[in-house]
């Protein structure tokens, strides 16, 4: 399982790096689709069918919106002259990434080995979740019964994001 996931993740990383360096914005958007659809396959192999269904539709709609925006404006990537500012940016980014790798290495020490996961709280959810909520799909049970507050908050964020889009696009600019 680990080898299969590593291969798919390798493809996703190649797609992500290509998306950042493409000269045409349309091909960058499509290369971002590699990452999204690779994620769907990963979710299916990780036994998460709920996530796979959501992700495949979300990725399609994201691509539709991004392609519409890119076609409506300009497709050309900016010509970046290799000035000293650009190289300072790249060097700062690499130093930052080095720090992040160091801290991630420290943080993974406390994680379980991949595939041997145990969590005290989840044991209760798995053993008694079906009796307590009456839902056969344990994910929905957790979502709407044990963690109802969280889900209400996320629904509120969705509402706020829709309001934000309306506000940004309806605003009349200064003349």
């Amino acid at each position: 399982m680990e080898i299969l996931l590593s291969v798919i993740l390798g493809f996703m990383i190649i797609g992500a790096i290509y998306a950042l360096h493409a000269n045409d914005l349309l091909s960058a958007v499509i290369a971002q689709g590699i990452v999204g659809y690779g994620l769907v396959i990963c979710f299916l192999h990780l036994r998460a069918p709920d996530l796979a269904i959501v992700q495949i539709v979300v990725e399609t709609i994201t691509l539709i919106i991004m392609v519409a925006v890119v076609l409506d404006s300009s497709r050309k990537e900016l010509k970046t002259p290799a000035g000293w500012k650009g190289s300072v940016n790249v060097i700062l980014g690499l130093v930052f990434i080095g720090f992040m790798i160091y801290f991630f290495d420290m943080a993974t020490a406390s994680l379980d080995v991949f595939g041997e996961h145990t969590l005290r709280m989840s044991q209760t959810y798995i053993e008694q979740g079906a009796q307590k909520t009456g839902a056969a799909n344990l994910v929905t049970g957790v979502l709407w019964d044990f963690r109802g507050y969280d889900t209400l908050g996320e629904a509120t964020i969705l509402f706020t994001a829709a309001l934000g889009v309306l506000t940004v696009l309806r605003m009349k600019g200064k003349k």
């Binding site: 079906a130 909520t133 009456g134 056969a136 049970g141 209400l152």
Partner: peptide, 24 residues
């Protein structure tokens, strides 16, 4: 808050799980 007050029914039937289908 978010108490599941409707009757639960039997697991696996369409009308079960109290208020969860209505929230859905």
């Amino acid at each position: 808050f978010f108490h599941n007050y409707l009757p639960k029914g039997t697991i696996g039937e369409l009308v079960s799980a109290g208020a969860v289908p209505i929230y859905n």
